[in-house]
Design a protein around this nucleic acid. Structure first.
Length: 899
RNA sequence: AGGCACGUAUGUCAACGGUAGACGGCUUCCCUUACAAGGAAGAGGUUGGGGGUUCGAAUCCCUCCGUGCCUACCA
């Protein structure tokens, strides 16, 4: 079999995915075990407008690792893909296209515009789904969903109607965040605050005093133009300076209106002048104050952020910023502008288009959150669900936010989205219904007009874990896969999405939508900056795939897990090298596979005991399986990757292959050779399975090449499927094969070889030169171990002969070393030894040991250590000290032998 | 303004109260017949500073310095 020397990821990434998909490997139906446990994940639906970025790649990798792992463990596994209709983004995207054609959506009309959006979606939406295939994501495409699908839309209407009927959804006038550019309301979560250098204007309002004396009250504001809509001036009730003014009136300049001075706790006496202008129609806090004091609302700014007629003839039609200049100018002319100071404050902008938000009062639909919130909080309190990883800080972040939750503005003045299922009669009655027909019946008339607004995109996202499974119908899928096992997501949507899914899941299904929530870290650029389109510092996962391969990239992403990490190509390179190592290890096994095959019995049917290296690798393999299982159960992806990396590279490649090489590469076909070959192949095959969830492509590519792989290796749940590693049984740790004794014996052999190599390297012995190795060892068992592995030790240490005795008996001109446990080793090197130098080398080693011994002695000398530390710890310390003492004295003797 | 994290080898990160490690980089030697994307050996850390709790602290507490993030907003 001819296999190239270097692994070419592109070639392996070409065919397997399509084959897996065709054979239905991703769908839960592939599992024929009716009793199989269930594992399910719904993808956080990416925006239909989006394309793949590192954050997605990170999430998808983690979801795929978990899904593939559970699938190989025999679970009925579903990872459900899909997309979000992304109301504002998508509407903006299509509007921009129209603009190029000189059109606006209003020119087209609602129906035509929506048709156009669907057309755009079919033609160029969902790039990200194609890219996901490249990632190797094992999602069930047969269950792909879109939030605007008919089924999901039905769920949205159902939820809306039920919440409305219970009085949790209501329509009302409130102050909201208005985007003058997108012409829609936004929730608090869709608004971003950015710091801004601005000005604070001090305006004077004349007070109408009883005795006619002149007095002014100064208010400070960042938005002078809103003064045209002032309906009060507020002061703190405890503020001595204004005590006598409570209840007085002020004459609002520029506007012929008298407004009261009111007292309200909200006002901070320390800030500015301690007096605040109150504009209930254009500021959220003022709005609240207005409600408390029953103040009139004067609307002076309209939906396009221009001044209204009520702002007065001088201002009518002016842009808000123009109006600001003019107000300031007029105050100055009137001598009422006290001062203007530089002032830095935060300004609210539309998350999408970055336009400055205008708080406006308008009629919107709202959802009361108290009841929904309380259920979610109770679930967390009683059952600690969902379980967050990392628990700190996310559990607290989640509960704190829920505790301070306010009503949710759910309507949006957009066309693209779920139109609100509310119909109006000409005389102003409202009918909320699941369909227009239902509304007509209820209204007793056909003359109905549907509410023109759509729902916040997150309204449908909140239903995702059950709407995708067929709710409100009681489908088989819903029964089987809800609640899902885990949600993997980025931290910025814990509020927008995670909490809302929990609330709606509890309300409508009566169970948490997911058992666990894993919150990923953020992939930063090399300067620690967030990757973003505007900064242009993003790294395209597809470029990384092209350069280093998907599997290597997945290992890096899995290692990132929940930590914020600066992206570094070096890491990918290192895992690319690992992939190449796997490739070449397999290549070696295959080049020496004649007469052998992967065979579950390769290590069995032996009358005599297995050789040490075989018992050792089985032990290592089973420990690795155990540790990987544990790490994945705890979402410690990094841990799992490290464990696999070191098992494969250190244990399997560096030692097992080398230890078996002589047997495996024997020219002549004989049972011992073929047995060794089969064992090697069998261990490799198990290792590939362990690696598969992390590195799906290379493992499949190699697995298919191994002799003896067939349907027998598949997990019983998939016995009827075509052989593929992704349906092979994930190796389960067998406690009987974990052999601590074999591991410690092997450690001694490895240490011996390493010490000899160390001596060779430090004394510049040529790699080709053979040396004699003399061993002195008082421990009979250990002598037997060395003796049994003599040939391998000789080969790996490049020794011409190995002499093992109870006591070390070496020529004076030898380099020496002491092993853990007290065995001594000497390498006679006549002519190469500088005695003084050699003594120094031993001396250095002794100093190192003594330093450590001093620490341990101090510890033991402390009576409280023996008293309070656990017994095992104390014993362990004693043993370590004894070992060091033994080695130190051996080194001492060695030094003396050199005199 | 409050809240929460983080600071470990030159870089990116582990270590979760019990001997501070990995990968990359660096130095020396080797193209040894799976792999130079490799092999062997090595250098490099008073865990940001200071204090405390503990038999024992990178880990827990306090404080200072530095860096991020989140929430709320002060007109």
């Amino acid at each position: 079999m001819e296999i190239p020397k270097t692994y070419d990821p592109k070639q392996a990434e070409q065919e397997h995915y399509a084959r897996w998909e065709e054979q239905g490997c991703f769908a839960p139906e592939i599992n024929r075990d009716a009793q199989a446990p269930v594992y399910s994940i719904v993808i956080p639906p990416p925006n239909v407008t989006g394309s793949l970025h590192m954050g997605h790649a990170l999430q998808h990798t983690l979801m795929d690792v978990l899904t593939r792992h559970k699938r190989m463990c025999g679970y009925r596994t579903l990872w459900l893909p899909g997309m979000d209709h992304a109301g504002i983004s998508t509407q903006l995207m299509v509007s921009r296209e129209l603009k190029k054609e000189g059109l606006t959506r209003h020119d087209m009309g609602r129906e035509k515009f929506i048709e156009r959006v669907w057309k755009w979606k079919h033609e160029s939406g969902g790039q990200i789904l194609k890219q996901m295939r490249r990632e190797g994501a094992s999602v069930d495409w047969s269950r792909e969903r879109f939030t605007m699908d008919e089924g999901l839309s039905r769920a949205v209407r159902e939820v809306f109607v039920r919440l409305y009927e219970e009085g949790l959804i209501y329509r009302g006038d409130r102050i909201v965040n208005w985007c003058p550019n997108d012409q829609t309301v936004l929730s608090d979560l869709e608004v971003e605050k950015t710091p801004q250098a601005g000005k604070l204007y001090y305006l004077q309002y004349p007070v109408k005093t009883a005795d006619g004396t002149e007095r002014r009250v100064t208010v400070a504001t960042t938005r002078p133009e809103t003064m045209l809509g002032d309906t009060a001036v507020a002061v703190n009730p405890d503020d001595e300076r204004y005590r006598d003014l409570a209840g007085a009136l002020v004459q609002l300049p520029l506007v012929k209106r008298e407004i009261p001075i009111i007292a309200d706790e909200y006002v901070d006496a320390e800030f500015g002048t301690g007096a605040v202008k109150v504009t209930p129609a254009h500021d959220p806090n003022d709005y609240e104050m207005g409600v408390r004091h029953d103040l009139p609302q004067v609307f002076v700014i309209d939906q396009h952020a221009r001044m209204t007629e009520d702002a007065g003839a001088d201002f009518f039609g002016l842009d808000r910023y123009k109006a600001r200049e003019l107000v300031v100018q007029k105050f100055e002319e009137l001598g009422l502008l006290e001062k203007v100071v530089d002032y830095e404050f935060s300004i609210s902008k539309c998350e999408r288009c970055k336009t400055v938000i205008e708080p406006l009062i308008s009629t919107q639909w709202f959802c009361r959150m108290d009841e929904l919130r309380d259920r979610a909080l109770k679930l967390m309190q009683d059952e600690k669900k969902p379980g967050f990883t990392p628990e700190v800080p996310y559990r607290k972040v989640y509960t704190d936010w829920l505790e301070n939750l306010r009503d949710w503005t759910i309507s949006r003045q957009l066309w693209w989205g779920h139109q609100i299922p509310a119909w109006y009669t000409d005389d102003g009655r409202i009918f909320v219904a699941r369909s227009e027909e239902e509304a007509r019946t209820a209204a007793g008339t056909d003359e109905l007009k549907q509410d023109g607004d759509v729902l916040d995109t997150w309204f449908s996202s909140a239903l995702w874990p059950f709407s995708t499974l067929g709710w409100p119908d009681e489908t088989e899928d819903l029964k089987t896969f809800y609640p899902t096992s885990v949600l993997i997501t980025a931290r910025d949507i814990i509020f927008l999405w995670v909490s809302r899914m929990v609330m709606s899941g509890l309300k409508f299904i009566g169970a948490t939508p997911f058992q666990d929530v894993f919150v990923t870290g953020t992939v930063l650029d090399k300067h620690g900056q967030r990757m973003s389109k505007t900064k242009g510092n993003g790294i395209d996962p597809l470029d990384v795939f092209d350069k280093y391969g998907v599997d290597a990239t997945r290992l890096v992403l899995a290692s990132i897990g929940s930590t914020d990490t600066r992206w570094n190509d070096n890491q990918v390179e290192s895992y690319r090298n690992f992939a190449n190592k796997i490739w070449n290890a397999a290549r070696f096994c295959l080049m020496n596979s004649e007469g052998a095959s992967v065979n579950a019995d390769a290590f069995q049917n032996q009358d005599e005991m297995l050789p040490l290296h075989d018992r050792w690798i089985l032990s290592r393999l089973n420990k690795t399986a155990r540790e990987v299982d544990k790490a994945l159960a705890e979402y410690q992806f990094h841990e799992a990757v490290q464990t696999l990396y070191h098992f494969f590279w250190d244990d399997f490649c560096d030692w097992y292959i080398e230890l078996t090489k002589a047997d495996v590469t024997a020219e002549e076909s004989k049972p011992s050779r073929d047995r060794a070959r089969s064992r090697l192949l069998t261990v490799l095959e198990q290792a590939l399975r362990l690696l598969h969830p992390f590195m799906p492509y290379i493992t499949e590519e190699l697995w298919q090449k191994l002799p003896g792989v067939d349907e027998k290796l598949l997990h019983p749940a998939y016995s009827e499927a075509q052989p593929t590693i992704m349906l092979a049984a994930y190796p389960q740790s067998d406690a009987n094969l974990i052999a601590e004794r074999a591991e410690s014996e092997m450690s001694a052999v490895i240490e011996l070889i390493s010490r000899v190599r160390n001596i060779r390297s430090e004394l510049n012995v040529k790699p080709g030169d053979r040396v004699r190795v003399l061993i002195g060892c008082a421990d009979e068992k250990l002598r037997e171990v060395f003796a049994a592995n003599k040939e391998q030790i000789a080969r790996l240490a490049r020794a011409s002969e190995i002499n093992i005795n109870e006591h070390l008996d070496a020529p004076r001109a030898s380099a020496r070393a002491v092993l853990a446990g007290g065995a001594e080793v000497a390498v006679p090197l006549e002519g190469l030894i500088d005695f003084a130098q050699e003594r120094e080398r031993l001396q250095r080693e002794r100093e190192k040991l003594q330093k450590e011994a001093a620490k341990l002695e101090a510890q033991l000398a402390n009576p409280q250590f023996a008293e309070r530390a656990p017994v095992e710890k104390v014993n362990e310390t004693r043993e370590r000290l004894a070992d060091i003492a033994q080695r130190t004295s051996a080194l001492q003797q060695m030094s003396e032998a050199l005199r």
